[in-house]
Amino acid sequence: MISFDALAGNNALKNSLKHALNERFPQTVLLSGDDPAALKTLATVLAAGILCEGAGSHPCGNCLPCRKVEQGVHPDLMIVDEGEAELKVDLARQLKAENAIIPNDGERRVTVIHHAQNLNPMAQNALLKELEEPPAYAFFILTAEQPDSLLQTVRSRCTKFALEPSQAAVSDEEAASLLAPYLSAVAERREDRMMLSAMGLEKTPRRALSGVLGILQAAVRDAIFVSKALPQKPLQPALRKQTQALAGAVSMERLLAVYDFIDVLIDRVSRNAASAAVTCALTSDIYRICYAS
């Protein structure tokens, strides 16, 4: 039966995605990680969750759409997996044409593009408008082992979720205990406490640190939704108090800039940035983004 249990570890990420699936799931998602098999598993589970018509939590694993996804026969699910081959502009045009057609079975259509970093620049540019303003029924899931290889214009149009190997995963409780003091310090405009909290992350293993930064980014996204007064259950409910305070202290425009900057930090970590440099960025750079006049 198709479910999140098929993906080992990654508990914080899975809980975030479960909350999102049962509320307002983003129409364009970028999943990143260094395990292609795990990315495929997660993308399939998310596709089932989007197409699920069962009661309760999605994917239910029992309804007809879930079973069709599991069997690979759902007519409203298109999966692109060309391995390491270059993905060219003709593919982008085909995807646009496919998504111009209303769904066959239900109310939604899902397109999964594996190894999205192999989309050449022309193909990425051809997909930009589709990713930014898809039809109301259309959902895109991109997976990438090297997300920084994608154009920034593509990445900025996606809601990003970073996958961590199971041995490096962090629990919800661990992530909350690491990030709650930091988010509170940001909201209270206390740069000294931001530094102390950020220094607590220096002992986090590098792979786990990428995951924690991904959770931080999800919390910032929650704050953006609060700032916009959009009704949605938070992706990080354990940090609800801190994200609400952050939304009250920092403008939506600056929160969006923080969200984008965390992408830069995740990329730096993947390139073996020194822990002290990450601490400095979480302190001085984010303080400047939030409060510089």
Rank of each mutant, 00 (worst) to 15 (best):
C63G: 04
I113K: 01
V154F: 01
E86G: 07
F140M: 10
L183Y: 05
E23N: 11
E191N: 05
A43P: 09
Q27M: 00
L216S: 06
S210H: 08
E191T: 08
V69W: 03
L13G: 04
D76C: 02
R268M: 15
F139D: 07
A85S: 14
C52L: 02
A55E: 07
R108I: 00
S57V: 01
A229D: 14
D267S: 13
S197K: 03
V29W: 00
V264E: 14
M252A: 15
N120C: 09
P147T: 01
N104K: 06
A198F: 11
G106R: 05
V69E: 06
I113R: 02
G214T: 04
A55M: 02
I289A: 09
R240N: 06
A185F: 05
D90W: 00
L178Q: 14
V73M: 02
F161C: 08
R207A: 14
V258C: 13
S149M: 12
E70S: 07
R207P: 09
L239A: 12
A238S: 14
T204M: 09
R268F: 13
A292H: 15
H19Y: 08
E84P: 06
Q146I: 11
P181L: 05
I289T: 12
A97M: 09
Q152L: 15
L77G: 08
M195T: 14
